[in-house]
């Protein structure tokens, strides 16, 4: 058993993390090696002194300040988080409703102008799922025109157009 091996094992030994066999070997070595024994003694003394270091105390007013903080600060939770922001929600909701209304009106009530374009095969071959659009395309073709009136679905859906 050499010093190098014992020094490798000195911290596990100190922490009680060696096997019974290893402990026996280490202790046998320590009994005959002053250098290793001194080193272990030093670590043990540091540990013993560390265990007995004075317990420090916060200020005398610590508990009073803590209680005051706990009384002042409400318990936080998801609901209190949302509740704290109720004013923001209350303000945002009407704004969102008004904005949605404006956007809907601007896209649905304002008739889009019809557009006369050169007919191309793309539009002729398009099979719209809307019977109304299909009607427009067929009607234009039956008139013998080579132009197609393209009507946006939303605008055409409005019968007043």
């Amino acid at each position: 058993m050499n010093c190098h091996w014992v020094k490798e094992k000195i911290f596990p030994y100190l922490d009680g993390e060696v096997t019974a066999e290893e402990r026996g070997k280490i202790e046998a070595h320590l009994a005959s090696c002053q250098s290793c024994a001194e080193e272990l003694a030093c670590f043990k003394n540091i540990r013993t002194t560390a265990h007995t270091l004075d317990e420090l105390k916060p200020s005398d007013y610590f508990e009073m300040r803590l209680k005051r903080r706990l009384q002042v600060t409400p318990k936080s939770s998801v609901w209190s988080f949302l509740w704290k922001r109720r004013l923001a929600w209350a303000a945002a909701l009407p704004v969102l409703v008004i904005l949605s209304f404006i956007i809907f009106r601007s896209s649905s009530s304002k008739p889009m102008p019809s557009l006369q374009v050169e007919a191309d095969y793309y539009y002729l071959e398009t099979e719209s799922e809307s019977p109304d659009i299909q009607y427009v395309v067929e009607k234009e073709l039956s008139n013998g025109s080579n132009q197609v009136l393209i009507v946006p679905v939303l605008s055409y859906a409005d019968k007043s157009y």
Binding site: E38, A41, C42, N45, I46
Partner: peptide
């Protein structure tokens, strides 16, 4: 980390706590 701290402390305090050189 604990072991390195122990070694550093031994380096500094060896003469007070009765340790040899590692």
């Amino acid at each position: 980390r604990v072991n390195r701290a122990r070694l550093m402390l031994k380096e500094k305090l060896g003469k007070f706590f009765g340790g040899g050189n590692r």
